[in-house]
Simulated scan of single mutants.
Amino acid sequence: MTRIVAGTAGGRTLVVPAKGTRPTSERVREALFSRLEHLDAVEGARVLDLYAGSGALGLEAASRGAAHVVLVDSARVAVDACRRNVRALGMAGRVDVVADTVDRYVARLDGPAFDLVLLDPPYDLGDGALAAALEGVARGTAPGAVVVVERSARASAPVWPAPLVPLDDRRYGETQVWFAEHAAAQEAPA
């Protein structure tokens, strides 16, 4: 069973596709969002959840105070699950579901649309495909935006394109999480 960990929808269960997705465990989501809240990256943020699956990461962000969330997945069962979860949690209008490939969606990004981007691709996604997705994400983030990649602990670290710079990484069992920030935030005058 997958459920929202905290916030306005805390404890509510989510529909998860029977196959084809790997939902982030509650333990990892709790640790991930604890780190993101420490970075002040969730409250009021515009959030993009790529490879959304059930939408658990993006919906967790909405539950914890994100202003607007976009869930992107290309699998019909995942898109259907996301839509059902958005309706069940009463988040229509704050959370949009986009049925598209990540490649096509990020190719259209142009401008500082998002403050937080969450990427939880299939574990078998190659390094080149992840790098291409991150190139598009880099164009679609605002100064100070935080980008998170979740992969197998056996996978190689993401290659962060400019202006994204690595912040941190954490390992939770077989899951590795990397954090980066849009570098313009570090160049702002004090």
Rank of each mutant, 00 (worst) to 15 (best):
A138V: 03
Q176M: 15
S156C: 14
S152W: 13
R139M: 13
A145D: 01
S152A: 08
V148H: 08
P158Q: 08
A138W: 00
P143F: 02
G140V: 02
A155M: 12
G144T: 07
V137I: 08
A155E: 02
A132C: 10
Q176Y: 01
R139S: 15
L130P: 07
G144S: 12
Y172K: 11
D169E: 13
A157E: 13
L167G: 00
R171C: 12
L164E: 00
G173P: 13
V149T: 00
R154F: 10
A133G: 15
D168V: 06
A133S: 14
A132S: 15
T175R: 04
R154M: 09
A129R: 11
E150L: 00
G136L: 01
L164D: 07
L134N: 03
V137R: 00
W160V: 12
A162R: 14
R171G: 09
V149W: 05
R151S: 15
G144V: 13
Y172A: 06
P163Q: 10
A145M: 06
E135D: 15
G173M: 11
L130W: 00
A131G: 09
R171V: 13
A132M: 14
A145Y: 05
R171Y: 07
A157M: 01
R171P: 03
W160H: 13
V149Y: 04
W160Q: 09
P158I: 12
V159L: 08
D169F: 15
A129H: 02
E135Q: 14
